[in-house]
Design a protein around this nucleic acid. Structure first.
Lengths: 212, 212
DNA sequence: GAGGACTGTTGACGCAACGACAGTAGTAGT
DNA sequence: ACTACTACTGTCGTTGCGTCAACAGTCCTC
Protein backbone atom coordinates (compact mmCIF):
# COMPACT_ATOMS: atom_id res chain seq x y z
CA UNK A 1 0.00 0.00 0.00
CA UNK A 2 1.70 3.17 -1.14
CA UNK A 3 -0.80 4.43 -3.66
CA UNK A 4 -1.14 8.16 -3.97
CA UNK A 5 -4.49 8.74 -2.45
CA UNK A 6 -6.98 11.07 -4.07
CA UNK A 7 -8.35 12.96 -1.10
CA UNK A 8 -11.28 10.64 -0.62
CA UNK A 9 -12.40 12.75 2.28
CA UNK A 10 -13.17 16.44 2.59
CA UNK A 11 -9.98 17.09 4.40
CA UNK A 12 -8.56 20.16 6.00
CA UNK A 13 -11.30 21.16 8.34
CA UNK A 14 -11.36 20.60 12.05
CA UNK A 15 -14.18 18.26 12.89
CA UNK A 16 -16.04 17.36 16.04
CA UNK A 17 -14.98 14.16 17.76
CA UNK A 18 -17.89 12.03 16.58
CA UNK A 19 -17.70 13.07 12.96
CA UNK A 20 -13.97 12.51 12.91
CA UNK A 21 -14.39 9.09 14.44
CA UNK A 22 -17.03 8.17 11.91
CA UNK A 23 -14.98 9.43 9.03
CA UNK A 24 -11.88 7.53 10.11
CA UNK A 25 -13.92 4.38 10.67
CA UNK A 26 -15.47 4.69 7.22
CA UNK A 27 -12.05 4.97 5.58
CA UNK A 28 -10.63 2.16 7.67
CA UNK A 29 -13.48 -0.09 6.81
CA UNK A 30 -13.18 0.57 3.11
CA UNK A 31 -9.45 -0.09 3.12
CA UNK A 32 -9.70 -3.16 5.34
CA UNK A 33 -12.24 -4.82 3.12
CA UNK A 34 -10.29 -3.92 0.00
CA UNK A 35 -6.86 -5.03 1.10
CA UNK A 36 -7.38 -7.09 4.23
CA UNK A 37 -6.26 -6.13 7.69
CA UNK A 38 -2.59 -6.85 7.12
CA UNK A 39 -2.53 -5.09 3.79
CA UNK A 40 -3.27 -1.74 5.38
CA UNK A 41 -1.10 0.28 7.73
CA UNK A 42 -2.25 2.95 10.11
CA UNK A 43 -0.50 5.42 7.86
CA UNK A 44 -2.69 4.28 4.98
CA UNK A 45 -5.86 4.83 6.96
CA UNK A 46 -4.64 8.20 8.16
CA UNK A 47 -3.75 9.28 4.63
CA UNK A 48 -7.13 8.18 3.32
CA UNK A 49 -8.84 10.16 6.05
CA UNK A 50 -6.65 13.18 5.40
CA UNK A 51 -5.39 13.10 8.93
CA UNK A 52 -2.19 12.46 10.81
CA UNK A 53 -1.29 9.00 11.97
CA UNK A 54 -1.19 10.08 15.60
CA UNK A 55 -4.84 11.00 15.51
CA UNK A 56 -5.80 7.38 15.05
CA UNK A 57 -4.10 6.54 18.31
CA UNK A 58 -5.73 9.53 19.91
CA UNK A 59 -9.21 8.29 19.01
CA UNK A 60 -8.79 4.55 19.22
CA UNK A 61 -5.77 3.99 21.42
CA UNK A 62 -4.34 1.16 19.43
CA UNK A 63 -4.52 -0.35 16.02
CA UNK A 64 -6.33 -3.41 17.33
CA UNK A 65 -8.95 -1.26 18.95
CA UNK A 66 -9.55 0.55 15.69
CA UNK A 67 -9.98 -2.78 14.01
CA UNK A 68 -12.35 -3.98 16.69
CA UNK A 69 -14.43 -0.87 16.31
CA UNK A 70 -14.64 -1.39 12.55
CA UNK A 71 -15.86 -4.93 13.05
CA UNK A 72 -18.24 -3.84 15.77
CA UNK A 73 -19.89 -1.35 13.46
CA UNK A 74 -19.94 -3.82 10.65
CA UNK A 75 -21.78 -6.31 12.79
CA UNK A 76 -24.37 -3.76 13.73
CA UNK A 77 -25.53 -2.89 10.26
CA UNK A 78 -27.91 -5.71 9.38
CA UNK A 79 -31.16 -3.87 10.03
CA UNK A 80 -32.97 -6.95 11.23
CA UNK A 81 -34.74 -9.08 8.64
CA UNK A 82 -38.14 -7.92 9.77
CA UNK A 83 -39.42 -10.79 11.90
CA UNK A 84 -43.00 -9.80 11.25
CA UNK A 85 -44.69 -12.46 13.30
CA UNK A 86 -47.94 -13.66 11.78
CA UNK A 87 -49.91 -15.58 14.38
CA UNK A 88 -51.85 -17.85 12.08
CA UNK A 89 -48.96 -18.90 9.85
CA UNK A 90 -47.50 -22.41 10.00
CA UNK A 91 -43.91 -23.03 10.98
CA UNK A 92 -43.10 -23.89 7.38
CA UNK A 93 -44.45 -20.60 6.15
CA UNK A 94 -42.67 -18.58 8.77
CA UNK A 95 -39.36 -20.28 8.09
CA UNK A 96 -39.68 -19.96 4.34
CA UNK A 97 -40.70 -16.38 4.54
CA UNK A 98 -38.09 -15.18 6.96
CA UNK A 99 -35.38 -17.08 5.10
CA UNK A 100 -36.49 -15.33 1.96
CA UNK A 101 -36.36 -11.98 3.66
CA UNK A 102 -32.92 -12.72 4.97
CA UNK A 103 -31.57 -13.80 1.59
CA UNK A 104 -33.09 -10.72 0.01
CA UNK A 105 -31.32 -8.58 2.57
CA UNK A 106 -28.03 -10.30 1.89
CA UNK A 107 -28.26 -10.02 -1.87
CA UNK A 108 -28.92 -6.31 -1.46
CA UNK A 109 -25.97 -5.80 0.90
CA UNK A 110 -23.76 -8.33 -0.79
CA UNK A 111 -20.45 -6.61 -0.24
CA UNK A 112 -21.19 -5.64 3.34
CA UNK A 113 -22.13 -9.19 4.19
CA UNK A 114 -19.07 -10.65 2.49
CA UNK A 115 -16.88 -8.15 4.26
CA UNK A 116 -18.48 -9.02 7.55
CA UNK A 117 -18.04 -12.77 7.35
CA UNK A 118 -14.72 -12.38 5.58
CA UNK A 119 -13.09 -9.88 7.88
CA UNK A 120 -14.66 -11.44 10.94
CA UNK A 121 -12.43 -14.43 11.33
CA UNK A 122 -9.15 -12.58 10.96
CA UNK A 123 -7.59 -11.54 14.18
CA UNK A 124 -7.05 -14.23 16.76
CA UNK A 125 -8.16 -11.73 19.35
CA UNK A 126 -10.09 -12.69 22.45
CA UNK A 127 -12.19 -9.57 22.59
CA UNK A 128 -12.75 -9.55 18.86
CA UNK A 129 -14.06 -13.05 18.99
CA UNK A 130 -16.48 -11.99 21.69
CA UNK A 131 -17.77 -9.23 19.43
CA UNK A 132 -18.38 -11.63 16.60
CA UNK A 133 -19.92 -14.18 18.90
CA UNK A 134 -22.34 -11.60 20.22
CA UNK A 135 -23.36 -10.62 16.71
CA UNK A 136 -23.93 -14.26 15.84
CA UNK A 137 -26.00 -14.62 18.95
CA UNK A 138 -28.16 -11.70 18.01
CA UNK A 139 -28.78 -13.29 14.62
CA UNK A 140 -29.61 -16.60 16.24
CA UNK A 141 -31.98 -14.94 18.67
CA UNK A 142 -33.77 -13.31 15.81
CA UNK A 143 -34.17 -16.68 14.13
CA UNK A 144 -35.41 -18.11 17.40
CA UNK A 145 -38.17 -15.57 17.65
CA UNK A 146 -39.20 -15.95 14.04
CA UNK A 147 -39.48 -19.69 14.27
CA UNK A 148 -41.31 -19.53 17.55
CA UNK A 149 -38.62 -21.48 19.38
CA UNK A 150 -38.35 -18.89 22.10
CA UNK A 151 -39.74 -20.92 25.01
CA UNK A 152 -37.82 -24.05 24.08
CA UNK A 153 -34.52 -22.19 23.87
CA UNK A 154 -35.06 -20.54 27.22
CA UNK A 155 -35.69 -23.93 28.80
CA UNK A 156 -32.91 -25.71 26.91
CA UNK A 157 -29.87 -23.57 26.18
CA UNK A 158 -28.35 -26.36 24.11
CA UNK A 159 -30.76 -25.46 21.37
CA UNK A 160 -29.06 -22.13 21.18
CA UNK A 161 -25.80 -23.92 20.47
CA UNK A 162 -27.52 -26.05 17.87
CA UNK A 163 -28.71 -22.95 16.11
CA UNK A 164 -25.25 -21.50 16.22
CA UNK A 165 -24.27 -24.59 14.31
CA UNK A 166 -26.97 -23.81 11.82
CA UNK A 167 -25.67 -20.30 11.47
CA UNK A 168 -22.31 -21.79 10.59
CA UNK A 169 -24.00 -23.54 7.71
CA UNK A 170 -25.80 -20.37 6.73
CA UNK A 171 -22.56 -18.45 6.57
CA UNK A 172 -20.74 -21.12 4.61
CA UNK A 173 -23.62 -21.49 2.20
CA UNK A 174 -24.11 -17.83 1.50
CA UNK A 175 -20.40 -17.58 0.89
CA UNK A 176 -20.77 -20.24 -1.78
CA UNK A 177 -23.61 -18.28 -3.26
CA UNK A 178 -22.51 -14.65 -3.10
CA UNK A 179 -18.79 -14.97 -3.22
CA UNK A 180 -18.05 -17.97 -5.39
CA UNK A 181 -21.28 -18.21 -7.34
CA UNK A 182 -21.32 -21.96 -6.91
CA UNK A 183 -24.91 -21.99 -5.75
CA UNK A 184 -27.98 -20.04 -6.76
CA UNK A 185 -30.15 -18.20 -4.32
CA UNK A 186 -32.92 -20.73 -4.83
CA UNK A 187 -30.57 -23.57 -4.03
CA UNK A 188 -29.37 -21.86 -0.88
CA UNK A 189 -32.96 -21.35 0.14
CA UNK A 190 -33.77 -25.00 -0.40
CA UNK A 191 -30.84 -26.19 1.65
CA UNK A 192 -31.40 -23.85 4.56
CA UNK A 193 -35.13 -24.37 4.62
CA UNK A 194 -34.95 -28.14 4.74
CA UNK A 195 -32.20 -28.06 7.29
CA UNK A 196 -33.89 -25.63 9.59
CA UNK A 197 -37.17 -27.51 9.45
CA UNK A 198 -35.39 -30.76 10.20
CA UNK A 199 -33.76 -29.11 13.16
CA UNK A 200 -37.08 -27.86 14.48
CA UNK A 201 -38.98 -31.08 13.83
CA UNK A 202 -36.45 -33.81 14.52
CA UNK A 203 -33.34 -32.47 16.16
CA UNK A 204 -34.83 -30.26 18.85
CA UNK A 205 -36.93 -32.98 20.51
CA UNK A 206 -34.08 -35.45 20.44
CA UNK A 207 -31.44 -33.03 21.68
CA UNK A 208 -33.57 -31.76 24.53
CA UNK A 209 -34.27 -35.36 25.50
CA UNK A 210 -30.54 -36.04 25.53
CA UNK A 211 -29.94 -33.01 27.68
CA UNK A 212 -32.08 -34.26 30.54
CA UNK B 1 6.10 -12.59 24.51
CA UNK B 2 9.41 -12.23 26.25
CA UNK B 3 9.48 -15.27 28.44
CA UNK B 4 12.84 -16.84 29.04
CA UNK B 5 12.59 -20.01 27.10
CA UNK B 6 13.79 -23.27 28.54
CA UNK B 7 15.61 -24.79 25.60
CA UNK B 8 12.59 -26.73 24.39
CA UNK B 9 14.66 -28.16 21.59
CA UNK B 10 17.94 -30.07 21.58
CA UNK B 11 19.80 -27.03 20.45
CA UNK B 12 23.37 -26.47 19.49
CA UNK B 13 23.75 -29.14 16.87
CA UNK B 14 23.79 -28.61 13.17
CA UNK B 15 20.85 -30.40 11.63
CA UNK B 16 19.94 -31.45 8.13
CA UNK B 17 17.57 -29.15 6.28
CA UNK B 18 14.49 -31.32 6.66
CA UNK B 19 14.93 -31.92 10.36
CA UNK B 20 15.55 -28.25 10.98
CA UNK B 21 12.47 -27.33 8.99
CA UNK B 22 10.38 -29.80 10.93
CA UNK B 23 11.73 -28.64 14.23
CA UNK B 24 11.08 -24.99 13.47
CA UNK B 25 7.60 -25.79 12.24
CA UNK B 26 6.87 -27.76 15.39
CA UNK B 27 7.93 -24.84 17.60
CA UNK B 28 6.07 -22.34 15.47
CA UNK B 29 2.93 -24.38 15.60
CA UNK B 30 3.07 -24.76 19.35
CA UNK B 31 3.61 -21.06 19.89
CA UNK B 32 1.01 -20.01 17.34
CA UNK B 33 -1.68 -22.11 18.91
CA UNK B 34 -0.72 -20.97 22.40
CA UNK B 35 -0.54 -17.24 21.77
CA UNK B 36 -2.16 -16.70 18.39
CA UNK B 37 -0.38 -15.54 15.30
CA UNK B 38 -0.02 -11.95 16.40
CA UNK B 39 1.17 -12.86 19.86
CA UNK B 40 4.32 -14.46 18.54
CA UNK B 41 7.24 -12.80 16.79
CA UNK B 42 9.77 -14.44 14.54
CA UNK B 43 12.28 -13.90 17.32
CA UNK B 44 10.09 -15.93 19.66
CA UNK B 45 9.93 -18.82 17.25
CA UNK B 46 13.66 -18.64 16.64
CA UNK B 47 14.39 -18.59 20.36
CA UNK B 48 12.11 -21.55 20.98
CA UNK B 49 13.87 -23.47 18.24
CA UNK B 50 17.30 -22.48 19.55
CA UNK B 51 18.17 -20.85 16.29
CA UNK B 52 18.81 -17.42 14.86
CA UNK B 53 16.01 -15.34 13.52
CA UNK B 54 17.62 -15.15 10.12
CA UNK B 55 17.33 -18.88 9.71
CA UNK B 56 13.58 -18.62 9.60
CA UNK B 57 13.84 -16.36 6.61
CA UNK B 58 16.37 -18.70 5.10
CA UNK B 59 14.00 -21.63 5.26
CA UNK B 60 10.66 -19.97 4.71
CA UNK B 61 11.42 -16.71 3.01
CA UNK B 62 8.90 -14.67 4.90
CA UNK B 63 6.89 -14.75 8.04
CA UNK B 64 3.67 -15.28 6.13
CA UNK B 65 5.13 -18.24 4.33
CA UNK B 66 6.14 -19.79 7.63
CA UNK B 67 2.62 -19.33 8.85
CA UNK B 68 1.19 -20.82 5.67
CA UNK B 69 3.40 -23.83 6.07
CA UNK B 70 2.27 -24.33 9.64
CA UNK B 71 -1.35 -24.25 8.56
CA UNK B 72 -0.63 -26.51 5.60
CA UNK B 73 0.84 -29.17 7.86
CA UNK B 74 -1.94 -28.75 10.34
CA UNK B 75 -4.50 -29.40 7.64
CA UNK B 76 -2.73 -32.54 6.55
CA UNK B 77 -2.85 -34.34 9.88
CA UNK B 78 -6.37 -35.75 9.96
CA UNK B 79 -5.52 -39.33 9.00
CA UNK B 80 -8.77 -39.87 7.16
CA UNK B 81 -11.71 -41.17 9.19
CA UNK B 82 -11.44 -44.59 7.60
CA UNK B 83 -14.24 -44.64 5.03
CA UNK B 84 -14.49 -48.40 5.21
CA UNK B 85 -17.18 -48.87 2.62
CA UNK B 86 -19.55 -51.70 3.46
CA UNK B 87 -21.55 -52.61 0.36
CA UNK B 88 -24.64 -53.96 2.04
CA UNK B 89 -25.07 -51.19 4.59
CA UNK B 90 -27.87 -48.66 4.29
CA UNK B 91 -27.21 -44.97 3.84
CA UNK B 92 -28.35 -44.36 7.40
CA UNK B 93 -25.86 -46.83 8.77
CA UNK B 94 -23.02 -45.51 6.72
CA UNK B 95 -23.73 -41.92 7.73
CA UNK B 96 -24.11 -42.76 11.39
CA UNK B 97 -21.02 -44.87 11.44
CA UNK B 98 -18.71 -42.50 9.60
CA UNK B 99 -19.97 -39.57 11.66
CA UNK B 100 -19.18 -41.52 14.76
CA UNK B 101 -15.70 -42.31 13.51
CA UNK B 102 -15.15 -38.68 12.70
CA UNK B 103 -16.31 -37.45 16.09
CA UNK B 104 -14.12 -40.05 17.76
CA UNK B 105 -11.16 -38.78 15.79
CA UNK B 106 -11.90 -35.21 16.78
CA UNK B 107 -12.29 -35.96 20.46
CA UNK B 108 -8.95 -37.73 20.37
CA UNK B 109 -7.20 -34.84 18.61
CA UNK B 110 -9.17 -32.17 20.35
CA UNK B 111 -6.47 -29.53 20.55
CA UNK B 112 -5.22 -30.13 17.04
CA UNK B 113 -8.69 -29.75 15.64
CA UNK B 114 -9.40 -26.62 17.63
CA UNK B 115 -6.12 -25.15 16.54
CA UNK B 116 -6.91 -26.01 12.96
CA UNK B 117 -10.33 -24.40 12.80
CA UNK B 118 -9.27 -21.64 15.13
CA UNK B 119 -6.06 -20.64 13.43
CA UNK B 120 -7.53 -21.23 10.01
CA UNK B 121 -9.59 -18.10 9.69
CA UNK B 122 -6.92 -15.69 10.85
CA UNK B 123 -4.90 -14.16 8.11
CA UNK B 124 -6.83 -12.52 5.33
CA UNK B 125 -4.39 -14.07 2.92
CA UNK B 126 -5.38 -15.15 -0.56
CA UNK B 127 -3.07 -18.13 -0.69
CA UNK B 128 -3.84 -19.13 2.87
CA UNK B 129 -7.50 -19.21 2.11
CA UNK B 130 -6.79 -21.49 -0.81
CA UNK B 131 -4.96 -23.88 1.49
CA UNK B 132 -7.86 -24.03 3.88
CA UNK B 133 -10.35 -24.34 1.07
CA UNK B 134 -8.44 -27.28 -0.33
CA UNK B 135 -8.41 -28.99 3.05
CA UNK B 136 -12.13 -28.47 3.37
CA UNK B 137 -12.60 -29.92 -0.08
CA UNK B 138 -10.65 -33.01 0.82
CA UNK B 139 -12.89 -33.49 3.85
CA UNK B 140 -15.99 -33.01 1.74
CA UNK B 141 -14.76 -35.46 -0.86
CA UNK B 142 -14.20 -38.02 1.84
CA UNK B 143 -17.76 -37.52 3.06
CA UNK B 144 -18.99 -37.83 -0.51
CA UNK B 145 -17.39 -41.22 -0.94
CA UNK B 146 -18.62 -42.48 2.40
CA UNK B 147 -22.18 -41.52 1.70
CA UNK B 148 -22.09 -42.90 -1.82
CA UNK B 149 -22.80 -39.52 -3.37
CA UNK B 150 -19.82 -39.79 -5.71
CA UNK B 151 -21.71 -40.11 -9.00
CA UNK B 152 -24.21 -37.39 -8.14
CA UNK B 153 -21.51 -34.94 -7.20
CA UNK B 154 -19.57 -35.56 -10.38
CA UNK B 155 -22.70 -34.89 -12.41
CA UNK B 156 -23.84 -31.93 -10.31
CA UNK B 157 -21.02 -29.88 -8.86
CA UNK B 158 -23.52 -27.77 -6.89
CA UNK B 159 -23.82 -30.64 -4.49
CA UNK B 160 -20.21 -30.15 -3.64
CA UNK B 161 -21.01 -26.60 -2.63
CA UNK B 162 -23.97 -27.80 -0.60
CA UNK B 163 -21.69 -30.12 1.29
CA UNK B 164 -19.25 -27.33 1.91
CA UNK B 165 -22.18 -25.63 3.56
CA UNK B 166 -22.67 -28.71 5.67
CA UNK B 167 -19.03 -28.69 6.64
CA UNK B 168 -19.56 -25.12 7.85
CA UNK B 169 -22.17 -26.49 10.19
CA UNK B 170 -19.91 -29.31 11.25
CA UNK B 171 -17.14 -26.89 12.16
CA UNK B 172 -19.42 -24.55 14.06
CA UNK B 173 -21.03 -27.42 15.91
CA UNK B 174 -17.85 -29.14 16.93
CA UNK B 175 -16.58 -25.80 18.17
CA UNK B 176 -19.63 -25.62 20.41
CA UNK B 177 -18.87 -29.09 21.63
CA UNK B 178 -15.12 -29.20 22.07
CA UNK B 179 -14.32 -25.61 22.77
CA UNK B 180 -17.25 -24.21 24.66
CA UNK B 181 -18.77 -27.40 26.00
CA UNK B 182 -22.23 -26.17 25.14
CA UNK B 183 -23.15 -29.41 23.41
CA UNK B 184 -22.42 -33.05 24.14
CA UNK B 185 -20.96 -35.39 21.63
CA UNK B 186 -24.24 -37.23 21.38
CA UNK B 187 -26.08 -34.03 20.65
CA UNK B 188 -23.61 -33.09 17.96
CA UNK B 189 -24.05 -36.49 16.44
CA UNK B 190 -27.81 -36.14 16.40
CA UNK B 191 -27.72 -32.76 14.74
CA UNK B 192 -25.22 -33.70 12.07
CA UNK B 193 -26.83 -37.02 11.33
CA UNK B 194 -30.30 -35.64 10.81
CA UNK B 195 -28.98 -32.79 8.78
CA UNK B 196 -26.83 -34.90 6.52
CA UNK B 197 -29.63 -37.37 5.91
CA UNK B 198 -32.01 -34.58 5.08
CA UNK B 199 -29.48 -33.23 2.64
CA UNK B 200 -29.10 -36.59 0.96
CA UNK B 201 -32.79 -37.40 0.91
CA UNK B 202 -34.51 -34.09 0.32
CA UNK B 203 -32.03 -31.40 -0.62
CA UNK B 204 -29.98 -33.21 -3.24
CA UNK B 205 -32.91 -34.11 -5.52
CA UNK B 206 -34.38 -30.66 -5.28
CA UNK B 207 -31.11 -28.81 -5.79
CA UNK B 208 -30.09 -30.88 -8.78
CA UNK B 209 -33.53 -30.28 -10.27
CA UNK B 210 -33.04 -26.55 -9.75
CA UNK B 211 -29.66 -26.71 -11.40
CA UNK B 212 -31.01 -28.00 -14.73
C1' DG C 1 -12.15 42.93 20.27
C1' DA C 2 -8.34 40.99 23.45
C1' DG C 3 -7.17 37.26 26.41
C1' DG C 4 -7.56 32.70 28.19
C1' DA C 5 -9.32 27.86 28.57
C1' DC C 6 -10.33 23.85 26.08
C1' DT C 7 -9.45 20.36 22.84
C1' DG C 8 -8.74 18.69 18.06
C1' DT C 9 -4.50 17.93 15.66
C1' DT C 10 0.28 17.26 14.42
C1' DG C 11 5.58 16.42 14.11
C1' DA C 12 9.02 13.91 15.96
C1' DC C 13 11.09 10.47 18.91
C1' DG C 14 11.83 5.68 20.69
C1' DC C 15 11.17 1.02 20.04
C1' DA C 16 9.98 -3.46 18.14
C1' DA C 17 9.94 -6.48 14.33
C1' DC C 18 10.75 -8.04 9.57
C1' DG C 19 13.79 -9.09 5.45
C1' DA C 20 18.34 -9.07 3.13
C1' DC C 21 23.11 -9.99 2.67
C1' DA C 22 27.66 -10.82 3.51
C1' DG C 23 30.27 -13.54 6.23
C1' DT C 24 31.41 -17.72 9.52
C1' DA C 25 31.73 -22.46 10.74
C1' DG C 26 30.84 -27.17 10.44
C1' DT C 27 30.83 -31.26 7.18
C1' DA C 28 31.69 -34.33 3.27
C1' DG C 29 34.40 -35.79 -0.71
C1' DT C 30 39.06 -36.56 -2.66
C1' DA D 1 45.05 -31.59 4.30
C1' DC D 2 42.69 -29.12 1.01
C1' DT D 3 38.47 -27.79 -1.19
C1' DA D 4 33.58 -27.37 -2.15
C1' DC D 5 29.37 -27.04 -0.06
C1' DT D 6 25.83 -25.42 2.93
C1' DA D 7 23.74 -24.80 7.48
C1' DC D 8 23.86 -20.92 10.23
C1' DT D 9 24.57 -16.12 12.27
C1' DG D 10 25.54 -10.84 12.98
C1' DT D 11 24.13 -6.83 11.48
C1' DC D 12 22.09 -3.31 8.70
C1' DG D 13 18.21 -0.77 6.61
C1' DT D 14 13.34 -0.20 6.49
C1' DT D 15 8.69 -0.13 8.02
C1' DG D 16 5.29 0.52 11.26
C1' DC D 17 3.23 1.34 15.90
C1' DG D 18 2.52 4.21 20.23
C1' DT D 19 3.69 8.41 22.99
C1' DC D 20 4.41 13.10 24.11
C1' DA D 21 5.07 17.78 23.95
C1' DA D 22 3.81 21.46 21.27
C1' DC D 23 0.62 23.88 17.77
C1' DA D 24 -3.82 25.73 16.28
C1' DG D 25 -8.58 26.34 15.89
C1' DT D 26 -12.93 27.47 18.68
C1' DC D 27 -15.65 29.15 22.34
C1' DC D 28 -16.34 31.82 26.48
C1' DT D 29 -15.49 35.92 29.33
C1' DC D 30 -14.58 40.49 30.24
Amino acid sequence: MAETEPPGAPEGSRLGPDERRDQILACARRLFSEHGIDGVSNADVARAAGVSRALLNHYFGSRRELYREVVRRMMDVPPVPVPEYVPGASVEDRVAQSLDGWLELLSRNRSIWLDAIGIAGCGGDEELEAIIDQARDRAVNRAVEVTGLGPVVRAHPEIHAVLRGFSGMAEATTREWLRHGRLTRKQVHTLLEHTLLTIIRDVVPEVTALGE
